[in-house]
Design a protein around this nucleic acid. Sequence first.
DNA 1: GTATCTGCAAATCATTTGCATTCTG
DNA 2: CAGAATGCAAATGATTTGCAGATAC
Lengths: 124, 124
Amino acid sequence: MNYSKQREMMMRILRSTKSHPTAQEIYAEMRKSDPKISLGTVYRNLALLTKNGSVMRIDTNHDSVHYDGCTDPHYHFICDSCGKVYDLDIEPIALDERVEREFDCTVTGHSLIFYGKCSSCKGM
Amino acid sequence: MNYSKQREMMMRILRSTKSHPTAQEIYAEMRKSDPKISLGTVYRNLALLTKNGSVMRIDTNHDSVHYDGCTDPHYHFICDSCGKVYDLDIEPIALDERVEREFDCTVTGHSLIFYGKCSSCKGM
DNA sequence: GTATCTGCAAATCATTTGCATTCTG
DNA sequence: CAGAATGCAAATGATTTGCAGATAC
């Protein structure tokens, strides 16, 4: 994988926020600095960075895919009302090896997402 | 919610398989009995049934959304190679209340998905 | 009879892809 | 120079939606 200015900008954006942006949001953000950026580039790089583990992909029950620049194992809470994705501070659960043994498979990781209403949306 | 023949057929199909079909697969299956079924109806009913809790929606890192007719709390393993969705036999983890407390939110449920290679795809 | 469904077809919208060009090593 | 990466625009494909007719209660 070669260096590219666009990819560097993407990583900078992803690492500097906790907002778990979608591809389109990253695209919009990048355009502020460089209006020439193309959506295709954003998607291609997100795929590359996800594959090589630099970025975490978050599939939700709601809208489109979100991305997280922090790849330390951690979990998310997604608000069913506003759709925001929040980080949770919970120790990783240690079940991967057990699944491997009991299910006779190879486990490379897992995703744990909690759903409900965030503190802002709780009342409504 | 009124009765409908189409919706009943959908539930019958979903309850009778462990294959976690996609909307398109359900559609194909329904067409075998009734070639008049429309995709719109399938999607509309999946949305309804998911909302009222008769069906579980499974968002994966891979292709389109899968559906599970079994709504007893349980978890899934998804093979990164073949994309199949498997049921796991693991006791539900009890973290919802803790998340509510520590994150000041309402938790209605969570989703836990393991990724890796299933026994058939392991060798490759 | 009214609200709820359905089939059909067109519309939406996120994501992917082909291609000619530009950049990196 | 060769392989990678980009911008642009067109294509894809899952999902949604508007509408007029059919069904459930």
